Amino acid sequence: MQQRSIASAAISVIHGAGLEGTRLRDVARAAHVTTGAVTHYFDGKEAVLEAALEEVVRRTLQRLGRGRHKPPKDVETFVAQACAHLPVDEASQMEWRVWLAFWGKAIADDRLRAIHRRYYEAFVEHVAHVLRALKPNTSSREALLTADAVIATLDGVGVRAILEPEHWPSKRQRQTATALLVPLLREFEGAKKV
């Protein structure tokens, strides 16, 4: 439990200072522990940073999992659930900033790129599962292609919202995502099995 508390503290520090500006002592202070406690659980700054990324993904998958038992019955419900993953509040903005900070670092780091790929595979599989509930007779290929498009839409809106927060309030994020997702999902609903 202490490790998750430290990872959560690291998220808030990364949010304010970025990956390069994050220091172990700042993470310790935010977690209300000593630097020694941080190094007891983690083998240095890189391990703490990766734990923060893992915590962001854990939270995202947990939110995604909440809807597993009641998949949406219609496009509007699906879109509303999808829009809940945009950076529309302070907590989700912090998580998005951490996620995007690692995007930048992963460009030149094969190991981080592999980690991102694994996380995206989990996201795509979950969205495809939900899409198959929306349209039970769909093929896996069609569900996976549509899941990729849904995630690309959310990524695009989310990136703009993080980079230009003054121009992308939550209402605009939801409106833009809805404008892109509804036609995509209507086509998905009406498409014949591939």
Rank of each mutant, 00 (worst) to 15 (best):
A84I: 03
Y41F: 10
V98Y: 09
Q173K: 04
L144Y: 07
A80Y: 08
R23D: 00
Q173M: 11
H116D: 05
W99N: 02
V98H: 07
E90S: 09
G36I: 06
A133I: 00
A80V: 10
V33P: 01
R97I: 12
K135N: 04
K70N: 14
G104R: 14
W168F: 10
T153C: 04
K192D: 15
E54F: 07
W168Q: 02
G16T: 05
G36M: 14
L61G: 02
K73D: 05
A9N: 08
R59N: 08
P71L: 00
E20Q: 07
V27Q: 13
T60Y: 15
A128Q: 01
A122I: 08
V56Q: 11
M94K: 15
V194L: 07
R117L: 15
L53F: 01
G21A: 06
A149T: 10
P71K: 07
G67L: 12
R58H: 08
V130C: 04
K105T: 12
F78P: 01
H85Y: 06
H32S: 11
H32R: 13
A7Q: 04
F188L: 00
A152K: 00
R113A: 11
R132M: 14
L154D: 09
S140A: 11
L64M: 14
K45L: 15
P71R: 11
P72C: 00
G21N: 11
A133L: 04
S170R: 15
I162A: 10
G158W: 06
A37L: 13
V13L: 11
K70S: 08
E90K: 11
L145E: 08
Y41V: 07
F188Y: 15
T146D: 10
A101V: 05
R66A: 11
